[in-house]
Nucleic acid binder design. Structure first.
Lengths: 201, 201
DNA sequence: GCAAAACGTTAACAAAAGATAAGGAAATGG
DNA sequence: CCATTTCCTTATCTTTTGTTAACGTTTTGC
């Protein structure tokens, strides 16, 4: 764990605003439960078979979620700056994770450990605000997840890719195409064909 | 809206226990924000283009979530007894819904309106408990949603069906096969073929 | 700066899924 | 109770995707 600079704390505070706004006293207490970690490229943040002890907030960089199936990696999701990142099920339930999360480039994350989160929820000064904070984050990701889920049920891979062209610039700009293909639920070869099909039309 | 019986209230209280346990005083106040509605078969609970004003808790019966695409219905999800049901994104954000929810049989739901939920969150006697209640529900459905989402990325339709055979007895027992096919992200014809393939092996 | 690895495209073939239609069984609703 | 609708299967044909491998380009890591 590294030392926190004022600039990092401010960026974090700003990034949390959609979910929680702290007054000065609360912020001082809150930040005592926070740590900063720098990840090298390819360094793991979560690992299959291990309990994910942290939820991270990406200050700089990006991470990739992936599963390993039949020895091959399948990329599931990404988090960029100002996103949270965690193997949520593992973090929330204490079960071992079924996926990996790795940094795709040098990445800075603010970390909240499960232990510290539970302590904040038991701390009368923060509990109420943290309950709400957690509710709003969970709701936010539930909505994202639902949207993406319904795209798998109601859309073809080509339609999902076209939608990504409209709304997923970050992913398309910053991720290699074979990760994007996995994210869309298809193989890299198939995405390459879809791209060709679209250009030809 | 219909009158609430003591038995229904008790069933509701019991069903909420994983998320919130109320003392007597809280329960009396909480239940003032609740209503009961009976749905006939095929009656709509949520509708595309309209804001979903309620989150429901299924006491009896079942509901089906579906989209309409090119004039055809595509079934997305189900809720059974002791499940919540809502077009969550619409309910939480106030945007119009993109899907329909209909009762598949005579169905009883406890309803919490968005307006009443907001009032509870503003009521000091309930606010803290309701924040937590909301957090735990959102977390629960986030985990469900994430699991299902990763099944679309990492598994074939056949593998998803085999998993449903293990863990989705409710859906398989109570839902017609063409709804199940949609739920798995494939056509009814394709599911029929998968079933044949499995039997033959 | 160079060798190795990673990446995207393309081709060829196999496997699976979508579309459409037909037939029969089962459920449903007067 | 009977006519209608709903549902599942099957067949045929088309489209799409998966698999594997090859090739050239780009990036990466000493």
């Amino acid at each position: 764990m590294d030392a926190l600079t004022q600039a990092q704390l401010e960026a974090f505070r700003k990034g949390l605003e959609p979910y929680a706004v702290f007054n000065e006293a609360e912020w001082i207490v809150f930040t005592q439960y926070i740590s900063l970690q720098n990840f090298k490229k390819k360094q793991l943040f979560a690992e299959e078979g291990k309990v994910c002890q942290y939820v991270g907030f990406v200050l700089k960089g990006s991470v990739r979620y992936y599963h390993i199936k039949d020895g091959a990696e399948i990329t599931n999701y990404f988090s960029f700056e100002n996103d949270f990142a965690s193997s949520y099920k593992s973090f929330l339930t204490g079960d071992t994770a079924v996926n990996y999360i790795e940094a795709l480039e040098p990445t800075q994350m603010m970390l909240i450990s499960k232990k510290n989160l539970d302590q904040m929820l038991a701390n009368p000064m923060l509990a109420y605000k943290i309950e709400r904070f957690g509710r709003l984050i969970a709701e936010h990701y539930l909505i994202c997840c639902e949207d993406r889920l319904s795209s798998f049920v109601t859309q073809t891979p080509e339609e999902r890719y076209l939608k990504l062209l409209e709304t997923g610039r970050d992913i398309l700009k910053r991720m290699p195409q074979h990760y994007v293909a996995n994210y869309l639920g298809i193989t890299p070869v198939s995405l390459s064909r879809i791209r060709k099909r679209i250009l030809t039309v």
